[in-house]
Write a protein that binds this DNA or RNA. Structure first.
Length: 831
RNA sequence: GCCGGGAUGGCGGAAUGGCAUACGCGCGGGUUUCAAAAACCCGUGGCCGCAAGGCCGUGUGGGUUCAAGUCCCACUCCCGGCACCA
């Protein structure tokens, strides 16, 4: 059916490649535009979500090229990760082989879609020429004091003797043997991303103005800054000072208990001091908390568990003894792992105290109420007037907070502090298929970095993965055993690898100079290309990837690799919605997956690209409909047929334009206007609104107008040729192959991909005649054709003189007449 | 619970406070055909009416305005994020 899209698409893909149409170079003489999509994991094949993402990016890249920008538009693969290890076991292959096979397959899929990437710049993160720079950057971070080791819990299966990723924990058990998963502490590698928390937060307001509001809010919440004070409780019996953070120092007089996280270091010290029986009970409680999954622990509705210790701490202000409890709802990884308990003004503390019979003392009274600790049914967390708070009684909350902290600081009772919800980044993974962490464990010198000149620490490729949990590196003594870079003695390599988010935090800088072997990238290239002007990808990366990449850019700028002005990697961000079918996200488990390759075979890449951009605005979810695909295909056939059927008259009438001023026939003038208003709207929809669906709708309208226009004289034929030129030009970013073929059929020797984007003629945008809507009391009563450009007064009198209008308002008193030039007149009447 | 976003024909969706439903899908009718496919043409929010025309209509209830899908207030439902964060 229709045109031979197979032949056309293959022909032009070959042509673009031969002519190197999309290869770009750093050229400070030209204005640059960096258009980037989130690179895929090479899982086997591109899915519809990828196709949607890349069809948007390619359309923009092609559009911007035609607008005269020097466009960097690259593609690569985020190629390390656990699925390769699973696949290696399943298919009895090697992660390396499986990954590279997928990379080649997916590259070919992309080429078949006609995406205009500069393929010379392809980056694969599993390539040693890439990951050696991961290692190098990691060492720079180490030098700057941003890398540290700390013991942290991992999911552990006793039966398999392995570490499990969060996704491998199913209902609290191992995904293979169902053994309950336990937390086990391991020494792990961390990066101090929290050093950048404040800048990461500040730039959201000042620099990320081209990002969707929703992502900015998500990042703000993720970073989670809160201002407050740190205070301390002296525990003489243990010669220890408990530190706690609070945002409500104004409630300090309402403290009735102290609560520690079960993992708090003081808990261990207590165990040493207590009699045996007490120790047993306490250990048992701590073990019970530890057995709770992190999900149970962090469930707001979950039961609060507490254990009263025989110790007390001194109230920071009054010095009175305050009982110390251990509670499951206190988290070790936020604040200090200890809190001041103020049940009257914190719901969690309130629930805890009601359960365990701890006294409740209100220190804030809401307006028009008097709270009584004995009868309260819920904590009061709002603002009110302080009470039971010494000299601060009667102060409203918003004043009490700063006043009491000022006073506390002067007296040495507390210290202003800012806390972030953002955690340091745990980057070590107990896995094989990743970037080896460039460190060596020496029995004499400790943990020492591999010298830069010895990089890369190569990841052995010829390995057999037998068990997902156990890294094969541990069974490769020839790789594991090495010489200590400091003392030269026998030492062991770090066998853990980096989180793959590390790889994806700077790949866009690598694209600027992909082959460079002296540094991660050439500064001259990044100075020109960075930052990315338009980034496109899924919303699911709103917090992790998009924060890590921002942090990397700040760091690389701090060490002078990126110019100081580049603090943020992505100026504009577009987050596309999911591809939905039958009401759910396409997924293998639901069996509603549509394979892009099959659809491309059936309808061609041009059709798929067009449908996917037409079916919904970019941010929305897209409902997959094969009937919709047929509609898009029908449209392209209509365009093809028009050119083919009228080829003779179209080629005989050259493309020199007819000026608006030379047209007198109203049908011709309207048609000319349709052509130019189409250019205007399509340009605006793509460039400013990022509403690709409406841009395509306008092109469909132009095509409809083209079929409806019947040229009679030579001027008409020239106009029709102008319309076809504009249509093909504006359609080319969306469906690039078919239009290239039609363009050639029309006798052009240039590539449409390199033909400048059309500019609308100003005088072809203004209308001669407009339809004036006439309303009576806000209801449409007539539509009148009027010459354009009448001012308010003349419009009013013209409308009021109209016989039809006179009839509608006959016998009624005119109260008021509102006129909007070229649009509408509303007559307000009474009676 | 908190923070966002949303709700428009049978469906996807369109509408700088100014003609609600552009464009596409689907559906109905027709042309062409031996027949079908493809293509083309016409119609397509609901109700009343032979018609002209009228009334109603953008989740619900109020408000502002000459005029509200659009702005304001309250609510319902759906989606997303965060969630015992001290």
């Amino acid at each position: 059916m229709g045109y031979d899209f197979q032949a056309v698409e293959t022909k032009w893909q070959k042509m673009w490649e031969e002519r190197k149409s999309f290869e770009v170079e750093t050229d400070p003489g030209k204005p640059k535009f960096y258009c980037l999509e989130m690179f895929p994991y090479p899982s086997g094949a591109l899915h519809m979500g990828h196709i949607r993402n890349y069809s948007m990016g390619d359309m923009l890249a092609r559009f911007l090229r035609k607008k005269g920008w020097n466009v960097l538009y690259p593609m690569g693969f985020d190629a390390f990760g656990m699925p390769a290890e699973n696949a290696a076991i399943k298919y009895k292959t090697k992660p390396h082989d499986w990954t590279w096979q997928n990379i080649e397959y997916m590259t070919n899929q992309s080429k078949r879609m006609g995406y205009s990437y500069d393929w010379r710049r392809r980056v694969e993160t599993c390539n040693p020429n890439y990951y050696r720079w991961n290692q190098w950057i990691f060492l720079q971070m180490y030098k700057k004091g941003l890398v540290y080791r700390k013991s942290a819990p991992v999911n552990w299966c006793e039966t398999c003797g392995t570490v499990l990723a969060n996704e491998q924990v199913v209902n609290g058990g191992c995904w293979r043997c169902e053994t309950p998963v336990v937390k086990k502490n391991l020494e792990q590698w961390f990066i101090k991303i929290t050093d950048y928390a404040q800048e990461l937060l500040d730039n959201i307001d000042s620099k990320l103005t081209g990002w969707p509001e929703r992502v900015r809010i998500m990042q703000r919440n993720w970073i989670g800054r809160s201002e407050g004070a740190r205070l301390s409780f002296r525990v003489d019996a243990l010669d220890y000072t408990i530190e706690a953070f609070t945002t409500r120092f104004d409630t300090v007089y309402g403290i009735t208990f102290i609560a520690l996280a079960p993992e708090h270091e003081l808990v261990k010290a207590m165990l040493d001091k207590l009699p045996r029986e007490e120790t047993a009970r306490m250990s048992e409680f701590v073990a019970r908390c530890a057995a709770q999954s992190s999900i149970e622990r962090s469930d707001a509705g979950g039961e609060k568990l507490g254990f009263k210790t025989p110790f007390t701490g001194a109230h920071p202000v009054t010095g009175e003894p305050v009982p110390i409890w251990i509670a499951n709802y206190i988290l070790m990884d936020y604040g200090t792992g200890a809190i001041m308990g103020v049940p009257a003004h914190d719901q969690r503390d309130f629930d805890f105290c009601r359960k365990y019979g701890i006294p409740i003392i209100p220190v804030i009274q809401p307006e028009g109420e008097t709270l009584d600790g004995a009868t309260m049914t819920a904590a009061f967390e709002g603002d009110g007037l302080s009470c039971n708070s010494g000299q601060f009684d009667g102060l409203p909350t918003q004043k009490a907070i700063p006043a009491m902290i000022d006073w506390g600081e002067k007296k040495g009772l507390c210290k202003r502090e800012v806390n972030f919800r953002l955690r340091d980044w745990l980057i070590s993974r107990q896995r094989y298929w990743g970037t080896p962490i460039p460190f060596v464990h020496c029995p004499r010198c400790g943990v020492v970095p591999v010298p830069e000149e010895q990089l890369p620490v190569l990841l052995p490729e010829d390995v057999t993965v037998v068990d997902v949990g156990r890294s094969p590196l541990l069974d490769l003594p020839e790789w594991l055993e090495t010489a200590c870079p400091v003392c030269g003695g026998k030492a062991r390599r770090e066998a853990e690898t980096m989180d793959t988010f590390f790889c994806s935090s700077w790949y866009f800088e690598r694209y600027c100079s992909p082959g460079f072997d002296k540094a991660p990238f050439k500064t001259g290239d990044t100075d020109y290309w960075m930052p990315v002007d338009q980034y496109i990808g899924g919303i699911e990366h709103a917090c992790l990837h998009l924060i890590y990449a921002r942090f990397f850019t700040m760091f690389l700028s701090d060490i002078g690799l990126l110019k100081p002005g580049v603090r943020e990697p992505f100026t504009n961000l577009l987050t596309q919605g999911m591809v939905i079918k039958d009401g759910a996200k396409m997924s293998k488990s639901l069996g509603n997956v549509v394979d892009p390759t099959e659809i491309v075979d059936k309808y061609g890449a041009d059709t798929v690209r067009l449908f996917i951009l037409f079916a919904s605005p970019p941010q929305n979810d897209l409902d997959w409909s094969e009937q919709g695909v047929e509609g898009a295909h029908r449209f392209l056939n209509r365009v093809w047929r028009f050119v083919e059927d009228n080829l003779e008259s179209l080629t005989q009438n050259g493309s020199e334009r007819v000026a608006m001023s030379d047209l007198s026939d109203s049908v011709q003038r309207d048609f000319k206007r349709k052509i130019h208003s189409t250019i205007f709207s399509v340009t605006r929809d793509i460039d400013e609104e990022k509403q690709f669906n409406t841009a395509i709708a306008r092109l469909m309208e132009l095509t409809n107008a083209l079929y409806a226009f019947h040229p009679a004289e030579p001027v008409g034929y020239r106009l029709r040729r102008e319309a076809v030129d504009v249509l093909l030009n504006c359609l080319s970013p969306f469906s690039p192959h078919i239009v290239e073929e039609l363009w050639q059929m029309l006798g052009n020797e240039t590539l449409l991909a390199q033909t400048p984007w059309p500019v609308p003629e100003k005088d072809a945008l203004a209308a001669d005649v407009v339809t004036i809507v006439v309303q009576v009391n806000g209801k449409v009563r007539a539509k009148l054709s009027m010459p354009a450009g009448l001012d308010e007064t003349r419009l009013k009198s013209a409308v009021m003189d109209d016989a039809q209008v006179k009839e509608k308002i006959a016998g009624k008193e005119i109260v008021k007449v509102i006129a909007v030039p070229d649009k509408l007149v509303n007559v307000v009447v009474k009676g």
